[in-house]
């Protein structure tokens, strides 16, 4: 997957939509966010400190002159630990407002917390997301790490894949290991 914009369908109430992709997908997610922001309020939980406000503003500008008003529709909170992620999801209002969770698994890739504890906290987070998705559209982005991925990445991704109903898996193009023929 290169940096071109992928258009994701707007998530639907009643199910969790999951995007599994490398970091380059942020631009596409900001486009999705812009679409939602033009319709009304949207909540963003950022687990990887990767929310790109400038990209969002640029996308909004293509659709409206009221960029600031649209930006005010996007409510954001960042989680830096898995404990914070759970606490934040528990505090989200369940009133039909769409929820986008960015780079959800980053906070769970924390070697200061035991894996069993992280899996338990992830389970709690997914239960909360499931509950929210009953009344509001929910989309989650799980970032794939290309060079530093470990077995833990897969272990943490598995429960997320289980709860998601729509899954988009995007891959970075493979880098050729040898020089391609020039002529």
């Amino acid at each position: 997957m290169d940096r071109q914009i992928v258009t994701f369908p707007v998530p639907q109430t009643g199910k969790i939509s999951l995007v599994v992709a490398p970091r380059a997908v942020v631009g596409s997610l900001m486009s999705l966010l812009a679409t939602l922001a033009l319709r009304g309020q949207v909540l963003v939980v950022d687990g990887g400190n990767c929310f790109d406000g400038y990209a969002l503003a640029r996308t909004l500008r293509l659709h409206t002159h009221e960029v600031n008003a649209a930006l005010k529709q996007v409510w954001l909170s960042r989680a830096f630990t898995c404990y914070q992620m759970v606490a934040m999801l528990a505090e989200l209002p369940v009133d039909g407002t769409p929820v986008i969770v960015l780079d959800m698994l980053s906070t769970f890739l924390d070697e200061n917390v035991s894996l069993s504890k992280r899996l338990r906290l992830l389970d709690s987070s997914l239960n909360l997301l499931r509950r929210i998705s009953q009344g509001a559209p929910v989309a989650v982005w799980a970032r794939t790490r290309t060079t530093t991925a470990t077995a833990e990445d897969q272990q943490l991704l598995a429960p997320l894949l289980e709860v998601a109903r729509d899954i988009w898996e995007l891959q970075a193009p493979e880098t050729p290991t040898h020089q391609l023929p020039l002529f």
Binding site: G53, N68, L71, Q73, L76, S77, A79, Y83, Q84, E91
Partner: peptide, 13 residues
């Protein structure tokens, strides 16, 4: 610590 960031509009960021 469980305390997370307050929800705030993206514009405020």
């Amino acid at each position: 610590k469980q305390q997370a960031e307050m929800l705030k509009p993206a514009a405020d960021l």
